[in-house]
């Protein structure tokens, strides 16, 4: 356990701004201030066990899983194309992929508000083809769309970086031994890219399961997710104890999903931690 003295400022920083706040959250979730001092209670966790709140939790997980899956479905081919040798101006393409991320994601989500609305761009274009305006905004599909749109780069980039590191000679060897391109993909490329896939899944799932802005703006407040619930406890209700308990549940959930991911990823690079 020999540490360099130079690490101490960082350790102190982490203690003050990460460890202590975390402990405070845990503390608030189990302790209430009563007239005769502090009392330990599990009341807030018990309250969370009510069907309403469990329903919210399940919805959050389901929507996040759907978004993660769609991101994977769309993102993997994109990463494959970007990493492929046939692509000229690769850097430009990657840059185009990254540029939207420089803008605040709130602004990008607001943009969808005007694109999807009844008199919005998409419905106007549909009307040129004689299609009646659709109710696109304020649906659960709109929430998933918002998540996929915002978090897709987090899926593409890790997969791309793993794919582009694969040793070309491995693929050539497989081809020399008579594997067709389907076999090369299923037996060589895909298994080798799994660490990237795993870290992509974690990086999409985590923000998707905790988001509260996307569900509020694109869901029109009709699809309460656990993030909205936590937000409300601190802003309108003022119930810090219940909010903290919800946050702890959320953190445990994320820890579990990360544990599952790293288990699959055991003997490969530890990129899933990102």
């Amino acid at each position: 356990m020999k540490r360099n003295w130079i690490s101490y400022p960082y350790i102190i920083w982490m203690i003050i701004f990460i460890v202590v706040p975390l402990l405070l959250v845990v503390f608030y979730s189990v302790i209430v201030v009563t007239e005769d001092g502090l009392t330990f209670t599990l009341e807030f966790y018990k309250r969370f066990m009510q069907p309403v709140y469990i329903k919210v939790l399940i919805r959050s997980i389901v929507l996040a899983l759907i978004s993660t899956f769609i991101c994977l479905l769309i993102g993997y081919p994109v990463a494959l194309i970007l990493a492929g040798k046939g692509v000229s101006r690769k850097n430009t393409l990657i840059l185009l992929f990254v540029i939207p991320m420089w803008m605040n994601f709130l602004l990008r989500t607001y943009a969808w508000l005007t694109l999807l609305e009844k008199n919005g761009l998409i419905n106007t274009m549909l009307s040129w083809f004689g299609i009646k305006p659709l109710n696109l905004l304020y649906t659960s599909e709109a929430v998933v769309l918002g998540m996929v749109y915002n978090f897709l780069p987090f899926m593409v980039l890790p997969i791309y970086s793993v794919l582009s590191k694969i040793d070309k000679s491995v693929i050539e060897a497989a081809e020399d031994l008579g594997a067709n391109s389907y076999k090369v993909f299923t037996k060589i490329i895909f298994p080798l890219s799994l660490p990237g896939v795993m870290s992509g899944i974690t990086m999409v799932f985590m923000p998707a399961v905790t988001t509260f802005v996307i569900s509020r703006l694109l869901g029109g407040g009709q699809f309460t997710l656990i993030g909205n619930l936590i937000d409300r406890q601190f802003t309108t209700v003022g119930d810090w104890n219940f909010g903290s308990a919800l946050s702890v549940v959320m953190m445990i959930l994320i820890l579990i999903s990360m544990a599952i991911m790293t288990r699959y990823d055991k003997d490969r690079e530890g990129s899933a931690l990102l």
Binding site: Q50, V52, Y53, K55, V56, R59, G221, Q222, F223, T224, N228, L229, R232, Q233, T236, V237, G238, D239, F242
Partner: peptide, 16 residues
């Protein structure tokens, strides 16, 4: 403060 918790629970039931 106490009533607010009931309001929040009911509102959560409506929006979820």
């Amino acid at each position: 403060a106490e009533a607010m918790k009931d309001y929040d629970r009911i509102w959560t039931e409506v929006t979820s």
